[in-house]
Nucleic acid binder design. Sequence first.
DNA 1: CCCGAAATTAAAATCTTTTGCATTTAAACA
DNA 2: TGTTTAAATGCAAAAGATTTTAATTTCGGG
Lengths: 134, 134
Amino acid sequence: MDDQFGKLKSQGYKLTKQRCEILEALDDSPPLVAEEIFNFVKKHCKVNLSTIYRNLAILQKMGLIRKVNSLGQANQYELVKSNCKHAVECLKCGAKVIFSECFFDQMVAEIEVKTHYKIKKHNLELYGTCPNCA
Amino acid sequence: MDDQFGKLKSQGYKLTKQRCEILEALDDSPPLVAEEIFNFVKKHCKVNLSTIYRNLAILQKMGLIRKVNSLGQANQYELVKSNCKHAVECLKCGAKVIFSECFFDQMVAEIEVKTHYKIKKHNLELYGTCPNCA
DNA sequence: CCCGAAATTAAAATCTTTTGCATTTAAACA
DNA sequence: TGTTTAAATGCAAAAGATTTTAATTTCGGG
């Protein structure tokens, strides 16, 4: 949490109540849509929905949060944990196993060469069946 | 393609021009937003945007297509197929480049061995800066 | 070819997100 | 602690995306 505030400061962003509360809302929470974050922050300080949207864009650009897929129409956001591990999640029981990311890193490197893009962010989700449920 | 039409019929859905064209639009294409699909289908038959949305919901429910994450505000959709395409998207200008999936497949295979999970679904999103924006 | 269920259209309603501008505020510094 | 100012916020309105409603058309079986 503190390192996120630090990251904001170091990049010249102000630590406003609203901004901090947005991060608080997402801390240790399932992905939330803008309105849900708004409802949380509203309880702690004066805030406007547009401020939520503006900050979600900033926090996203900084890599502190990411947009995730959802079934609903509105976008959802979640915190990006500093130690980004990847996991496979079982479609039946939900059990997760973390795998080392060496293959992922290798793949990213290859893709950078092929596409001439510099890859800065990623989102990888894997689902399947675990040995117990198979 | 044909098996998709077959799946629609077998589940009691009619094979309308509009519905078929939506699948055509997504066939062998990077993820598209509703409006892009609309523009494609429009060229081939009379269609309304609401028809696009309604069918995207139906096709999604049937598992023929899936929603994917994007930087923009509109949702994107892609065909669910065994050989799905992945793209890198530029954080600045939004330009996308598709990369072949061989490394991804290799990685998935390795992860299956390591974790003893059978991987059935995935979501991979890559963002960076394209050569022009670098 | 005819019928009924299902699908489509067009328009309007409803969400979601962005923008312009006046006002406020965090934080650097005297 | 007060002053300063770029950055951030609030408010309102617009823009964009998605859904709904009700009337009309179309698919596909008989």
